[in-house]
């Protein structure tokens, strides 16, 4: 799981162009939206695409993303349970 969390942090930085952010600066339980990493609704759409493309998880309802993308830990947990690739 620790490996997946690190992988997710790297993907987030690359996919969302977080140029000034280092992997070490993203805490496992930091909120990704709002006061934490400061992601916004466009980032949420990018993450939905990332889930499907890299892990084979297709969210039927985009609103599910709100809970899934709460933090790196929550995301990693969800991916490990639902991934198809």
């Amino acid at each position: 799981m620790a490996e997946l969390r690190e992988e997710l942090k790297e993907k987030l930085i690359e996919q969302l162009s977080l140029e000034d952010v280092e992997v070490s600066e993203i805490g496992d339980n930091d909120p990704l939206f709002g006061d934490g990493l400061g992601l916004d609704s466009i980032d949420a759409l990018e993450l939905i695409v990332l889930l499907e493309k890299d892990y084979g998880i297709k969210l039927k309802d985009p609103k599910e993303g709100k809970a899934i993308f709460e933090s790196i830990s929550v995301m990693a947990d969800y991916i490990s349970k639902h991934r198809t690739k």
Binding site: Q15, I42, L45, E46, V49, E52, K53
Partner: peptide, 13 residues
Amino acid sequence: NNDEQFLTPTLFI
């Protein structure tokens, strides 16, 4: 590259 799938919004916008 992605066979017309997985298109992200930022580049489109």
